[in-house]
Design a binder for these strands. Structure first.
Lengths: 344, 344
DNA sequence: CTGAAAGCGCTTACAG
DNA sequence: CTGAAAGCGCTTACAG
């Protein structure tokens, strides 16, 4: 059925099919101008020997590699995994495969970016939640099609605003959360924010600030974290040290931070939701079990949409066509951490 | 600082440094025989222009690509993500990057495998929980160094028993769980098993069967699932239909299935742990919150160990050296789902 | 220690 | 519709 050892090359396939390398290459790249007869002959040989073209040779020669580079900075745990799963789902329908790299910090992210964008040959790239510094002029989108996921360029990011993107509707989501808290009678809100180089974190924080401006009756405060459980916990412990009389509600930038807040409050003997409400964002699997009020973030959808945008662009090859910005909605999940305890 | 557009090539670096391609290549590959002076000159140019060698050209030419292919079949959600994180951690210390692909089924797994093992040029491969069919003769480990993760070859898998592996001590872990249940007075146990082509699933099931043999007083039953929440739920609902009087305890193959069992029992109004105990395996983040008794599986450690084995082999290049099989321990986490309710 | 040359396995104009 | 040829950007013997 198949040879052991070295797999054969295009050249050998050509010989076996009594034709030339060029023609074999044509059937590989689905070029139309090949006679049905020779095409059949070649396909038989390929099939029979399980021939697979060498990706690296392909990449070097400038053809399609079927490779999609997915760059992610490590934020949160489940987040990128689900998004990647979504990307992979669509990619595999297009016979594509992911070359996924995890960046350790902004420098590494840029490193990887350049590797694939110019040096390496991938068909396209998806940047998951890239550090915003990337967009601010240090590097420019190159010739490879790129899609920003959970991020988007604007006027201040020269070049990047013309890059396809898929983001989540943070403004709508956060506003719903805040309105919900307002409805519950909460007046003093603390936003447990994320770092200023993460798009979603910035977007959510801005929404929080805007909401305060729109509702003069509210009192607001902001503390910063790294969107991790531990940093959420530490930040809130610190906050509680300075505020013996805590606020009405903690509005976390994400669920992980919310879990940390939870722990901190528990350690200080402050009851949720009796004394203080807590909300998150993302809808981590654990959140449902915990009863955390949060925004459901359709991670896989985000990934799927990003991949769809990318493959669309690859198909049409219209580099000129204007950028598309998809926005995915989040849905409010009201659970026990933001509701008054049942009067039982 | 750096040129826009096309990134430069080795040839141009050579010209700028007033030397030859060969010599530039030598400093790139850390070949010792380069005079300090020219080395410095070349490094300056590289640094100044941010030159990055083209991965594909490198791969084609047969050099180190710094690429590690990580193949995973999609089992469980958090599982592979954490393992990959562990791998990535070690890889990045060695300037390596992951080319991770998610296989959709065994066929695809083999496809990918061959792509990277022979066709493509990667420095090494890590196979995470590959379908066992892979090991049973259809394909053979090739010249690229490979490490099996959460899997291991044996006498029946010609060739694969000489491949490095890292596994988890299922036998010890499962035995501990079973002994714990025994101590709690449970006599009738149902093992909610996983598919027969997953190493860990098979290993755990075997341990369950052996335990029954060693403890004649016990009554045991086995039902099969896909190790997912939904299949766990369905399987147990089915079981309950046929067994109006359920067993003492459900011993799940993994936490996801255990969550499904939980749901099924809840739907039937059967209380945990009052009427029946439930245990899992993996220690999913959600399990702690849920109070699920389980085995803690150190996912990141698994990945780190796998990567370590791989880079060790790459460093020594001793293909001849005998295979190393690392075994990582799991630790029992006794929580509420297997304990009698507190007599309060 | 250094360079010129061959070659890795493809793709893509260029001529037929 | 098909082939011969050049070339993608590296690495690696091979001669100095």
């Amino acid at each position: 059925m198949k040879k052991e050892g070295k797999s054969l090359t295009l050249r050998q396939v050509a010989k076996l099919a009594r034709t030339s390398k060029s023609t074999v290459s044509r059937v590989l790249t689905k070029h139309p101008s090949v006679s049905p007869k020779t095409r059949a002959r070649i396909e038989t040989v390929i099939e029979k020997h399980g021939f697979r073209p060498n990706l690296f040779a392909r990449g070097l020669a400038g053809g399609r590699t079927g490779l999609i580079a997915v760059l992610t900075s490590e934020i949160g745990s489940g987040f990128y995994a689900e998004v990647i799963k979504g990307i992979d789902h669509v990619a595999s329908q297009h016979e594509g495969h992911l070359l996924s790299s995890f960046a350790h910090g902004t420098e590494d992210y840029i490193h990887l970016w350049r590797n694939f964008a110019s040096g390496g040959r991938v068909d396209g790239m998806i940047l998951i939640a890239p550090p915003l510094d990337i967009l601010s002029g240090r590097v420019q989108p190159e010739d490879v099609p790129v899609v920003l996921c959970a991020c988007r360029g604007d006027r201040n990011t020269r070049g990047w605003e013309r890059i396809d993107s898929v983001t989540v509707n943070n403004e709508k989501g956060m506003t719903e959360i805040l309105r919900h808290l307002l409805d519950q009678g909460h007046k003093e809100l603390v936003h447990v924010a994320g770092p200023s180089n993460i798009y979603d974190a910035v977007d959510r924080r801005r929404t929080f600030e805007q909401f305060l401006l729109d509702h003069p009756g509210l009192i607001g405060d902001i503390i910063e974290t790294h969107m991790t459980r531990e940093s959420g916990r530490t930040a809130v412990l610190e906050y509680l040290r300075n505020h013996p009389q805590p606020a009405d509600a903690f509005v976390a930038c994400n669920d992980l931070a919310a879990l940390g807040i939870f722990e901190a409050l528990k350690e200080r003997g402050i009851k949720v939701p009796e004394s203080v409400a807590v909300t998150g964002c993302d809808d981590d699997p654990a959140s449902e079990i915990l009863g955390l009020t949060t925004l459901h973030m359709p991670m896989q959808d985000l990934g799927r949409e990003a991949a769809r945008l990318l493959f669309d662009r690859l198909a049409t090859k219209e580099k000129a066509s204007s950028a598309r910005h998809s926005v995915v909605e989040m849905t409010l999940r009201v659970r026990s951490t933001s509701l008054p305890p049942r009067p039982s």
